[in-house]
Simulated scan of single mutants.
Amino acid sequence: MVTSKTAADLNIEFKEKEIVETLQSLADKFPGKVVFTTSFGIEDQVITDYIFKNNIPIKVVTLDTGRLFEETYKVYNRTIEKYQKSIQPFYPKNEDLEQFVAEKGPNSFYLSVENRKQCCHIRKVEPLGRALKGMACWITGLRASQSNNRHDLEQFVWDGGFEIVKFNPLLDWSLDDCRTYVKENQVPYNVLHDRGFVSIGCAPCTRAIKPGEDFRAGRWWWENNSKKECGLHTH
């Protein structure tokens, strides 16, 4: 059974370890219970390359909200073709989504933060709960420089909401580090990154950012709130 102490112990154990070594060790320590969730952003593509290229037995999954960019589906397909590995999708529950859209409309998330968070919960948070069920360790592409909320993260943290240890292997990487890795290793990446998109989510809720804007300015851009999160990483 993993606990908050597990996360603290892992921070000590893997403090000086390379990413590939850590990923393999986690797969050995928690056999069949390590999962990586990818949204096919540039950070996630780096981690996918580490896992697939080295044949590390870690389950790779994605949350398909039903409102992703076409470019995201293209990089999803190119990734499967390149590595010849499976990426398991998790979709929103039909009945929940149908009721939400019937009651509030397809674009109600623009009307209030409450509606937006409800949409995120149905399309992302609930499916994530199913993806993490029974798992001991959850790997993410979070970086410290992505938002103020993430500056104080450690590589291993305890997520009390999902009751799981979360591993952030790229925590200290910069966006340029990710770009360099993808280029040097010929990793498929989302072409929206070349058009000013840094954080890519659902199409109606994501835009390119302008020079000098905060990293998260392109997400839920109509909201005046510095703590823009969908609920996946708020525990």
Rank of each mutant, 00 (worst) to 15 (best):
W222C: 08
S25F: 00
M1R: 11
D28L: 11
D172R: 14
R219K: 04
S108N: 07
N168P: 02
K166V: 10
K15Q: 14
Q155C: 10
S147P: 05
K104E: 11
W222H: 10
D176Y: 06
P204K: 11
G41P: 10
W221E: 13
T65C: 07
I87M: 12
P57L: 01
V2M: 12
E223S: 08
L23P: 07
F162I: 01
F36R: 04
L132S: 09
C178Y: 02
W220D: 00
L128I: 05
Q24F: 03
E16F: 10
F197L: 06
H233C: 09
H233F: 08
L132F: 12
K33A: 11
K228V: 09
V191C: 03
E43I: 08
D49L: 02
D177G: 06
D194F: 04
K183Q: 15
F14Q: 11
Y181I: 05
Y50R: 04
R116Q: 10
L111T: 12
N149Q: 15
K227T: 10
L128K: 10
K228N: 05
V75L: 08
C137A: 13
I51R: 06
E18W: 00
P204A: 12
K133A: 15
E16R: 11
Q24C: 03
G66W: 02
Q88L: 14
E223R: 03
E18V: 02
K85P: 00
P89K: 09
E114F: 02
C120W: 03
E70T: 13
A217S: 15
W222L: 08
K124R: 11
C202K: 01
V35G: 02
D172G: 12
T65A: 03
G160E: 15
K166D: 01
D172C: 05
K117D: 15
V34T: 05
I139P: 07
A217G: 02
K93I: 13
A7E: 11
I139M: 07
N149D: 15
F162S: 12
E21V: 12
E98Y: 09
R219Q: 00
F162A: 14
H235Q: 07
N190I: 12
K117T: 05
R123W: 06
V2C: 12
R216Y: 00
C137I: 13
H121F: 12
V61G: 00
K133Q: 13
I51F: 03
G105M: 08
E98D: 13
I58K: 03
R143T: 07
F100Y: 15
S4L: 07
D159C: 12
K93T: 06
N224L: 05
I12C: 02
T234R: 10
E81D: 14
T48N: 09
G161Q: 12
D177K: 02
I56F: 01
V198N: 13
E43C: 05
D64F: 04
N107P: 00
I80S: 04
E95S: 13
T206H: 08
A136G: 00
T38W: 02
M135G: 00
V187H: 03
V46I: 10
I164R: 04
I51S: 01
D159P: 11
G105K: 10
N115E: 15
A217M: 02
